[in-house]
């Protein structure tokens, strides 16, 4: 039995590591002039540059994630519904990849009116997170919703009728070093996040080969 399982595990791990993670970013048309001719090509959208403020009060731009793969999510500290689940799960990711200089976590608050720098700092402290590997960022509400909906492709819309006042997707988004989206996971479940961690390892392996 154990042998069969082991064999199955080997087959699985082989087939998985052979295959690269797909690029899920949307394609967009780009028109360039090549040799005097106008050529339209399609390229993958990338996560655009941004400027938010972290739990330590400093400005975080795309420089912070340069040459790193990272997991992005959207939450707010006073959310009683799915956020606690998401944070428990993301904490597992944090513990697993703690100290790995190639991996970062970026949690955006969708309630910047309440989630000030001090509130985010206390939340991170209370969650047992220190250092800069997991940044909790706040900023202009519209900008956060915009990057969430248009760049990370998650639903971050306000809906005052839902418990907690905001409906959001509970998704974790895996972004590679070229700022392409490589996976979207259910951040509220153990299985979803197990898959995320497996895919982080696969993505890390792509950069080693």
């Amino acid at each position: 039995m154990a042998v069969v399982l082991l064999a199955a595990g080997l087959v699985l791990s082989c087939s998985q590591s052979d295959e690269k993670l797909p690029i899920l970013s949307r394609r967009e048309a780009v028109t360039k002039v090549v040799d005097g001719k106008s050529v339209t090509d399609s390229v993958y959208q990338t996560i655009p540059d941004f400027a938010f403020v972290s739990q330590y009060g400093d400005t975080v731009t795309a420089k912070a994630i340069a040459n790193k793969i990272y997991v992005a999510d959207f939450f707010f500290t006073s959310c009683p519904t799915i956020c606690p689940k998401m944070k428990v799960q993301l904490k597992r990711v944090y513990e697993t990849f703690k100290g790995n200089p190639d991996v970062m976590l970026l949690s955006h608050t969708i309630d910047p009116a309440h989630d000030s720098v001090a509130v985010l700092r206390e939340f991170a402290d209370n969650l047992g997170v220190s250092g800069r590997q997991w940044l909790f960022v706040t900023g202009d509400r519209e900008t956060i919703y915009d990057i969430g909906q248009n760049s990370y492709m998650v639903t971050a819309q306000q809906d005052s009728s839902a418990p907690g006042g905001v409906v959001h997707s509970g998704a974790f988004i895996l972004v590679d070093k070229q700022r392409h989206i490589r996976g979207i996971y259910d951040g509220t479940t153990q299985e979803g996040v197990d898959k995320l961690m497996n895919d982080i390892n696969r993505l890390l392996a792509e950069y080693k080969s």
């Binding site: 009683p80 799915i82 606690p84 428990v88 904490k91 402290d125 969650l127």
Partner: peptide, 15 residues
């Protein structure tokens, strides 16, 4: 259970 967890152990210093 979202905050206090199914096993009742809470979450770090949050809950």
């Amino acid at each position: 259970a979202n905050c206090h967890q199914a096993d009742g152990k809470g979450v770090a210093a949050l809950y």
